[in-house]
C-alpha cells in the first residue's frame, strides 16, 4: 500500500461540477489536498504548448493546471466519466481524460475513479474504489462519501434557492449559459461576470437551475439530446429564457457538443435576446467587453423603447 500525503486537484473541467463533494470527501478521510491556483496566462500557455492545437480551450487550461500542480503534490486526482445516466453520454474529452494525462506525463502518479452508469459503475462504487487507492477500508469510505454527498445536496439547494430569489430582484437580469468549468474560470467566465456585476446587473448561472427541472424542460427544445451536461444547459435555457432580460451563451472554442446545441438554441430562441460568445486563447478581454457593452445597451434600450 502506498501512503499518499497530498492529493493535487486541478482547477478545471469536472472540479467545478464536483467541488463540494470532492473537498468534503477528502476532508472526511483526513486526506490533505491542494487545489491549483485560478487560471492565469502562464497556465494557459503551458497547457497550450503541451496539448495539440485543436483541443478545446478548457482542456488546454486543464492540462496547464496539471503542469502547475505536478511538482507540488504526490499524486493528482483525475476522474474518468463515461455516462452519468443510462442512455446518455458526456463529451468524449471526459472519457479519455485519465488516459490522456497519463500518456502526456508518463511519470505522474494519478488516482482516479470511473463512473459509467451504462455498465453499472455507479458513483458510490467509484468512490469506494477511490478510497481503496488512498488506503481506506470500505466502511470508512462509504461513510465519508455519504457525508460529503449530504453536504453537496445542502449546498446545491442553497444555490438553487438563491437563484429563485435573484429572479425576483428589480435589477436587469442576465442568464449566463455555459458549462460550469467555463463560467467559473478566471480567464473565461470571470471576465464576463465581473463586467456584468460592475454594471449593476443580476447574474443567473445556468448551473443554478433546480434539479427537478433538468429532466423536463429540455424536451421543449430538443428531445433527442444525449449529452447529460448539454441537456442541463438546454433545460436552463428553456426555463429561464422568459424570466430574464437577456441570455449570454459562453462557449470554449472548439467545443464539440456545444457546436450543435448552440445551433439549436439560436434557431429556437424565439423572441429572447441571445448573445453567443466563443472564447479562444485571447490575451486580452477588450474584444469581449466591447460586445458585452453593446449587448447591455441593447437590453436597456429595449425597455425604454
Amino acid at each position: 500500500m502506498i501512503i499518499i500525503l497530498t492529493v493535487g486537484i486541478p482547477r478545471g473541467l469536472l472540479y467545478y461540477r464536483y467541488e463540494t463533494l470532492w473537498k468534503e470527501f477528502f476532508n472526511n478521510l483526513n486526506v490533505k489536498y491542494i487545489i491549483s491556483d485560478n487560471s492565469n496566462f502562464k497556465i494557459l500557455k503551458d497547457g497550450k504548448n503541451k496539448c495539440i492545437d485543436e483541443a478545446c480551450l478548457s482542456l488546454k487550461l486543464f492540462i496547464g493546471h496539471v503542469i502547475s500542480l505536478k511538482d507540488k503534490c504526490d499524486c493528482i486526482f483525475i476522474p474518468r466519466i463515461y455516462s452519468l445516466e443510462k442512455t446518455e453520454q458526456v463529451c468524449t474529452n471526459f472519457n479519455c481524460l485519465y488516459d490522456l494525462i497519463h500518456n502526456l506525463f508518463p511519470d505522474l502518479k494519478i488516482i482516479n475513479y470511473n463512473i459509467d452508469v451504462k455498465r453499472k459503475n455507479t458513483e458510490i462504487k467509484a468512490f469506494i474504489n477511490l478510497g481503496k487507492q488512498l488506503g481506506f477500508n470500505k466502511k470508512d469510505t462509504i461513510k465519508a462519501y455519504k457525508m460529503a454527498k449530504e453536504k453537496e445536496n445542502i449546498k446545491q439547494t442553497y444555490i438553487q434557492n438563491s437563484a429563485e430569489h435573484k429572479l425576483s430582484s428589480n435589477k436587469k437580469k442576465i442568464l449566463l449559459l455555459g458549462h460550469p468549468y467555463n463560467l467559473n474560470d478566471n480567464l473565461i467566465g470571470k471576465t464576463v461576470s465581473n463586467y456584468l456585476s460592475k454594471n449593476n446587473i443580476e447574474i443567473i448561472y445556468s448551473y443554478e437551475l433546480p434539479k427537478k427541472y433538468i429532466n423536463e424542460y429540455y424536451k421543449k427544445i430538443s428531445p433527442k439530446v444525449h449529452w447529460t451536461m448539454n441537456k442541463e444547459l438546454l433545460s436552463a435555457f428553456m426555463y429561464y429564457k422568459d424570466k430574464v432580460d437577456g441570455v449570454i451563451v459562453l462557449t470554449a472554442f472548439p467545443c464539440g457538443p456545444d457546436s450543435l446545441t448552440n445551433e439549436m438554441i439560436l434557431r429556437k430562441k424565439g423572441k429572447s435576446k441571445v448573445l453567443l460568445l466563443t472564447f479562444e486563447e485571447l490575451s486580452s478581454d477588450v474584444a469581449v467587453i466591447t460586445r458585452l457593452e453593446s449587448f447591455i445597451d441593447m437590453i436597456e434600450g429595449c425597455v425604454y423603447a
Binding site: 496539448c51 485543436e54 478545446c56 468524449t92 474529452n93
Partner: peptide, 16 residues
C-alpha cells in the same frame, strides 16, 4: 475531420 473530439483526445496517445 477538423475538430473531431474523440480523435483529438486520442492523438497524444497515438503519438506516444
Amino acid at each position: 475531420p477538423t475538430g473531431c473530439t474523440p480523435e483529438i483526445g486520442a492523438i497524444p496517445i497515438i503519438m506516444r
